[in-house]
Design a protein around this nucleic acid. Structure first.
Lengths: 117, 117
DNA sequence: CGTATCTATTGACAAACATCAATTGAACTG
DNA sequence: CAGTTCAATTGATGTTTGTCAATAGATACG
């Protein structure tokens, strides 16, 4: 997953004639690309997209017991998806007694969102 | 990858007391979530984020021979990443003689971008 | 204390992924 | 036509993913 994104010299074209525009390079830094990739990867599942959607629209903390019945997967699978989102920094959670409440950390989406726009 | 996102009745809480706000539901449709997940997943790798960045900033078609030397991975690996982006509809390609030119399909990013904002 | 409930973790497994070396296919060059 | 070059594909390998059933941990209730 960790990759060298360093700009290296341009490949030579066969007969010296350039194959295209002189030099092309990324504007995003390596670390930036990696941060955004982590977030994008965490969003790369329809269940997790929907989870984030629910949590964002609700604008508060939502109990896991509310989330589980929204999907046709087992409780442990949903817990796994929530963990993925937590690990990517997209959501955070809080326990209150028996229940666990999840909420979105909006800042986590900002960089990717800005880059996409 | 294909999942039932249907809203099902709310789980009962232990003693009848609700564990949280009455009902929470997703605003995104199932198909929408799946489309966005495909795009997000395709962006879930730093090399592919950087590829899209380069192609977007260049605002034209970029030769693969320009892209390969930007990364510290083999030509076949880069080809694989470009294929992933193509399969997600994010980029498209065109051959001209020996060379292949890639360019971004901006519409492919719109839905996810709009949802994130 | 014992039992019930909610959520997280573990273990298992098949599918998908990232990567490379090697090969193939297409197209240009001489 | 023979050789060269660019890019895609194939095959191989180790890692990660999504899923479930089962279990464990924590907390509440009686």
């Amino acid at each position: 997953m960790s990759v060298d994104l360093t700009l290296t010299p341009k490949q030579k074209s066969p007969n010296g004639e350039p194959c295209c525009e002189p030099v092309v390079y990324p504007d995003v830094e390596r670390a930036e690309a990696e941060r955004m990739a982590v977030v994008a990867k965490a969003l790369g599942d329809p269940i997790r997209i929907t989870l984030v959607d629910v949590l964002r629209k609700h604008a508060g903390k939502v109990c896991v017991c509310e989330l589980v019945p929204l999907f046709d997967v087992s409780q442990s699978t949903l817990s796994h998806h929530l963990k993925k989102l937590r690990q990517a920094g997209i959501v955070d959670s809080e326990r209150q007694g028996l229940w666990a409440y999840y909420y979105v950390n909006p800042e986590a989406l900002e960089e990717l969102s800005a880059w996409l726009s």
